[in-house]
Each structure stands twice: as structure tokens, then as C-alpha cells.
Amino acid sequence: MTGALEKPKLQASGAVNPRRIREERIRRRGFAVASASTAAVVLALWILIPMAPGWSKVQASFFDWEVFAKTFPKLLSAFLVDIMIFAWSAPLIAVSGLAMALCRDVRSPALFPLKLFAIGYNDVFRGVPVMLVIYLFGFGIPGLGLPRPWNSPYIWGTLALVCTYAAYVAEIIRTGIESIHESQRSAAMSLGLTPSDIMRFVILPQAIRRVIPANMNILIALQKDVALLSVIGPVEILRQAGVEKSLAANFTPYVGASIIFLAVTIPATRYADRLIERQNRQRS
């Protein structure tokens, strides 16, 4: 037994290790198989799609270089509207999501109505499609007869996004809070910290750190959903693409808009994946 255990150890220190060579060979073979199959699939798509009967029509109306070059700069500048809405929505969502999570976590009986409110709030805003909330807020509230600028679609559209996304963020933060082991609370309580100090200094810092990756995914979703505000007036990228599309009767502007979205979401998604991976590694 001892001999069998020692043998690879001895060889590992040497220059030639048959096991390592074998592993290397397997890894290389795996890489080759992956590249070959990917190439085969891409090639098949490359050949098969243009063989479809409607390809030339689709190509003309979705991939028209001239239309692309003409509309892309306009799409880019319309995207600034999306970025703007995102930039002021995200912090508001973070704050209100946290507030809702805390409301939901209250343990004092006196504050029970707050907890009830938080539960109802979450049920409503996670249950209604964000598009409907935008419509209801964006047309309904200004319809009450608010004077300008208080009937701006930017205000009520943002509120719709914030209300909806805060419900999701609250839920994520709450699971984060619940994932912190009860013993942390016990230890903090035994030191005589007040419940609010326990939450602020012991539970939340750990909980928030744990849910950062999940919230990154929420941010990515938000970044896309900002475009939904277009239905209540703002001319952001999706609307601009729609306008260009109907002017040109050509769908290439949508392809352009997709490219702009991807340019933002792909790096963001990769970053979120890396955060999750790092966290998993730390926990194991």
C-alpha cells in the first residue's frame, strides 16, 4: 500500500511523468473535439441558412449595410437615453429594494403592518408584468391631471421600473439575510448589540456580499427593460430603431440596436459569472 502511494510521488518530481502526459493528451483531444464540432456547426449554419428560400429577402431587410450605417449613429445617441434612465433607476432600486427587504424582516410585533405591507408589495409587483406597470403608471398617474413637469413619462416610467425591480431586489436581499446563519445573530445578540446594529453591522454586510452576483443579473435585466419605457413617450434606442425601421421598411435598425445592447450586456454577464464563480470557490 505504502509503495503504491509513494510511486507516483517519486515520478511526479521527475521530468517525465506518464500520467501527466496522458492527461495532457486527453485534454488536447478534448480541445480538438470541441473545436471541430463547433466549426462543423458554424459551417452547417453558414451553408444551410442561405439555402433557405426566404434568405435573400431576410438578408435584404435585416442585414442591409447601407441602412445600418445610416441608422447606427442615431441609435447610439438614443441609447444615451437608456443609459440615463438606467443610471438614476439603479441606485433608487438598490435603496428601495433594501428598504423593502428590511421591512419584510422586521420581528417586532409593533411593526407588523410594515411587514404586511412589504409582503403585499412584493406579491403585487412581482406578479404584474413590468410592461403593464409601466403602462399603468405612465399613463394612469399623469392622467390624474398633474401639471408639467410632474406628468413627465421619465418620472412615472422610472417609478414603474423602480417599484417592480425593488420587489425583485428585496426578495434577493431577503434570501441573502436568511442565508446568514442564526449563530451570527446569536453571537451579536450575546454582545448586547441592538437589533438594528446587528442588522447593520453583522447581517447586512455579509448578506449583501452574498447576493451581489444575483443582483448583477438583475442589473442586466434592468438595462434591457429600460427600453420598455419607450411605450410611454421617451424616444430611446428601441423606439428610435422602430422609427427607423418603419421609415425604411427595413429591420436592420433592430439588428443595430441588438448589437448595442449586446455590447453592454455580454461583458456585464461575463463579469457576473466571474463573481459567482469566485464566490463559489470561496465558499467551498
Binding site: 392622467g143 390624474l144 408639467r148
Partner: peptide
């Protein structure tokens, strides 16, 4: 810009 005439008219009614 709005999706259709109904939405435009709604925005007009509420003074947006």
C-alpha cells in the same frame, strides 16, 4: 413617441 394613436391621445388628454 407612442405605440399607437390611442396612446398618443391618452398622453394628449393628460397633458404630457
Amino acid at each position: 413617441m407612442f405605440n399607437d394613436t390611442a396612446d398618443v391621445v391618452q398622453a394628449l388628454k393628460s397633458g404630457q
